[in-house]
Nucleic acid binder design. Structure first.
Lengths: 349, 349
DNA sequence: CTGAAAGCGCTTACAG
DNA sequence: CTGAAAGCGCTTACAG
């Protein structure tokens, strides 16, 4: 069943069929009605490849998770943020009759997929998140005019179709650490993650600046760098941290995300420490399970649903209007979810 | 840059360019070399829409998560199984130069997407998982000849391009419950999930049969049905279960998945019960976090990586060979991960 | 308001 | 081994 057959059945030309399919206004109501009737009756579906080839824009969006060199691990698990973002994007796109192609970028060469898809007109635009996207890639995308939204990235690149969409990682982290300070903590450790991720870097900066503004020196031996954002890393971090600082152990920990915090909690318990009596801990992301830990984890919540919606809607707007519309670029809201994992310091100083 | 230009540059016809692009053998090495050189030099990328339109099969696979009527909740979170399956599928497909379109099916009508995409030749085949796919849909897909793999579903539908790929839910559950029985438990409760999911139903059957084979009566008031597979449901289930069975509380719980178990553990703790001293609990899936709970959760592990790989590879094979090849249909392996959440019953009987 | 025709960029018999 | 040509199914100026 193709447009030609529909045309014959309706007694019109393919041009007219095309006009009603595309909702053009210059078709008299009766003609339109008749054609639509036939289309429904015969279940005609316009061929996507033919439409694309003839110049219609694609209705597929690409979502690419960037994580360099970690082939066995998988970014989609590295934080609930990613899988939630994915799920929410799909929901949002479905409502707009768009499709989502998902892939993972492990090496710089993998970015070729993105360009290829756009050149091919097989993809109308894309969302990039995770590790830092190099400028060289952004420049290519920018020159191609590929509508692109970078989630939680910084970039000085200035192309009309490339946008940033960020959450308040710095402030969220700052406020989390301030809570610990307010409880009298001074020996506050930080389990940070991959420096390839802007969100993680910003959380680190929030931690550092909060300490400094409170006249608390930043102690390098209280900072543990884990490259993989999984519970196991948090677990290892805590064991190492406590061994390295015998007699001068931190009294509180700020973990760059909940998964790291979960692992850390397990480590602390194994060391015989009680949370929060002996040591306080705060995570980040408000993973669903954070409230099911013992004790429930204090953490920072960001509305993933909202950021996903803003991202998808903005991208679609840019794609459809074919112009560089100002895009919401930051979700300012976040909430410090105070639960049971933070308590006043036992022995101040 | 199109095949015509490449042809001119290489001094051949478009036909020949097409032949080398498609790796046909009837091109002399020197010609082939020359054309490939030009292609590389100019970065020529064959247009996907044109290829599809001209009859080349698409290289995109659809992955559809089926979950009826739960628009706010999201299946991708309902179990780590789904997000892990997704991540592993992407990895596997990337290696084969294929793309993955992901969507969520909430209503029967949404299945139209699947058909449309296949009719359009925009999708070469699909993977369906989650809630039960109705026969009417399978019949349509079967008649269209759409290569389809159903993960963890039962079906009597017999079409040459429709396959099942299952894990051993029945045996896994049976063995989990047997472990409890071996520890002397008789009052064994079950927190089950959506009956729309075959995997959950099979786990229920494994639970039931294990009890029966051990001459333990199946007590309806020990069975709690939760429709949403989240920690919150497990939490609620346990509170209700304990209230409903005052004086005759279960001494062990088998939860249909880890998320439910996590919630249940929290509920038990709030009720002042010690795990495993007062009550034992087993989950299912071996979620990454299960070993970070206190105590670490005993659970059943299935290799998601393996099932994803088998599924993707089989589907690709069917698509490429264009024939109904026998497909691995069941992953027999599973492992009971014994951790700290199970202990002998305190007061037998 | 509407149709004939060109064009999108490929693939694939077909003929040589 | 290779090219000319038809065809895949649309869209869109263009002319009327």
């Amino acid at each position: 069943m193709n447009s030609e057959e529909i045309a014959k059945l309706a007694g019109v030309s393919r041009s007219t069929v095309s006009r009603v399919v595309n909702g053009y206004t210059n078709v008299p109501p009766e003609t339109k009605e008749r054609v639509e009737q036939i289309i429904r009756e015969y279940g005609y579906i316009p061929n996507t490849s033919a439409r694309n080839l003839a110049g219609k824009p694609s209705n597929v969006i690409g979502l690419f998770f960037v994580e360099y060199g970690v082939l066995e691990e998988n970014i989609i698990h590295s934080s609930p943020f990613y899988s939630e973002f994915l799920a929410n994007s799909i929901d949002r796109l479905k409502k707009q009759d768009c499709q989502l192609v998902v892939s993972i970028i492990n090496r710089i060469e993998d970015f070729d997929m993105v360009e290829t898809a756009f050149i091919n007109k097989t993809m109308a635009g894309c969302i990039l998140m995770g590790d830092i996207v190099p400028n060289s890639v952004l420049e290519k995308l920018g020159k191609l005019g590929c509508p692109t939204i970078l989630v939680n990235q910084r970039s000085s690149i200035d192309y009309p179709y490339i946008f940033l969409m960020n959450t308040e990682n710095y402030k969220g982290a700052y406020q989390a650490v301030q809570l610990l300070v307010n409880h009298g903590h001074k020996r506050i450790a930080h389990i940070t993650g991959s420096v390839e991720k802007t969100s993680i870097k910003e959380r680190f900066e929030g931690y550092r600046d909060c300490l400094l503004h409170n006249q608390i020196p930043v102690n390098e031996s209280y900072i543990y760098y884990s490259h993989i954002h999984r519970a196991e890393s948090g677990y290892q971090a805590v064991l190492k941290m406590m061994a390295d600082n015998k007699g001068n152990e931190p009294t509180a920990i700020f973990a760059a995300n909940d998964l790291l915090a979960f692992g850390a909690m397990r480590g602390l318990k194994e060391l015989g420490l009680k949370i929060p009596q002996d040591i306080s801990i705060i995570g980040y992301d408000n993973a669903e399970l954070s409230q099911y830990m013992s004790p429930p984890l204090t953490t920072v919540q960001v509305s993933v649903e909202k950021i996903a919606r803003m991202t998808v809607d903005s991208l679609l707007l840019v794609i459809r209007k074919k112009e560089a519309i100002p895009v919401y670029s930051q979700l300012k809201e976040f909430t410090l979810m105070e639960r049971g994992s933070v308590a006043p310091v036992k022995t101040p100083g």
